[in-house]
Design a protein around this nucleic acid. Structure first.
Lengths: 152, 152
DNA sequence: CGCCATTAGTGGTATATGCCACTAATTGAA
DNA sequence: TTCAATTAGTGGCATATACCACTAATGGCG
């Protein structure tokens, strides 16, 4: 394959996904900036909010995120007083997470901005396309890449 | 909207995109691990390879990546001797990037693993779906979210 | 009951990415 | 030509995310 005919990176599912994520991330972050939250943080607050004092492991699983990554991501939100954690009384290994009152206020504020970004995206991309995109992404998140073990 | 009826984060385009990116990133990284490169690094080396000693700005634009982020991402690759930079003789503001011989070798090695990951993805997701996904992601990357300025 | 395998998180380290302020090199206009 | 505006990168700082080794709690088994 000569260099002249090499395909772009348009062929790599992963590269395309990251590239689109950067693009969309920049846009959502931009719209959310007035709240002082990144889109990822808003998403995390929301995830915590809709859960019933979810355990860290449960949040990580929902978001398909490494547990330790979640721990790190949570730190600024705790530091800023939006989130607090407490040990599950029935199993002290488990740490549960909830929003503080300020966290709830901040989430409300951020959600307003999120709606703007979301609406703008739907307008620009088209509702159909957006819908299909989300469905496709959801399927990907649900895929199982494990090689089936040689059944003995 | 009561808490019981709150939708999941399945509605947020950005959140879904990031979630899928984490999932796929973990998979690709896993397959590429034997090469010692992350999928992002392989993608970057490839992008450099298919360019003609591209300028940093050109790479960043292709990847829709912040220029300074590119600079940071490049550092480990330079440190490990896979990539080198040099000033454009015609415009010394411009820094061009190219693979070193070792970089080329490493890219070859990584591409073999990439093919495995890519093929496995296509198998699991289905070629049609993968194709459509990439197309959708490419469209997103091409969207323009700027609000049209009030034409005076 | 006592011990080991499992489970849930933590902390460290490294890459990925973005924004901002700043510098260097170029360009364009007075 | 000279100086202001623009362009290309750098460096610092902060968040996002992953993996690994380690610790604390549980749970099950002999």
């Amino acid at each position: 394959m000569s260099k002249d005919t090499l395909p772009g990176l348009t062929l790599c599912n992963n590269a395309m996904l990251r590239r689109a994520a950067r693009k969309l991330g920049q846009f959502y972050d931009d719209v959310m900036a007035p709240s002082g939250l990144k889109a990822t943080q808003q998403g995390l607050l929301y995830q915590i909010h809709i859960g019933d004092e979810p355990a860290m492991g449960a949040i990580a699983a929902s978001l398909i995120m490494d547990l330790s990554a979640l721990g790190h991501t949570l730190k600024p939100l705790i530091r800023d007083g939006y989130v607090e954690t407490f040990a599950d009384p029935d199993d002290r290994r488990i740490k549960r997470v909830r929003l503080t009152p300020q966290g709830l206020v901040k989430l409300d504020e951020a959600m307003k901005l999120w709606h703007i970004a979301q609406q703008r995206f739907e307008d620009v991309a088209g509702n159909d396309k957006a819908e299909r995109l989300r469905a496709a992404l959801d399927e990907i998140a649900a895929l199982d890449f494990d090689l089936p073990p040689a059944t003995p």
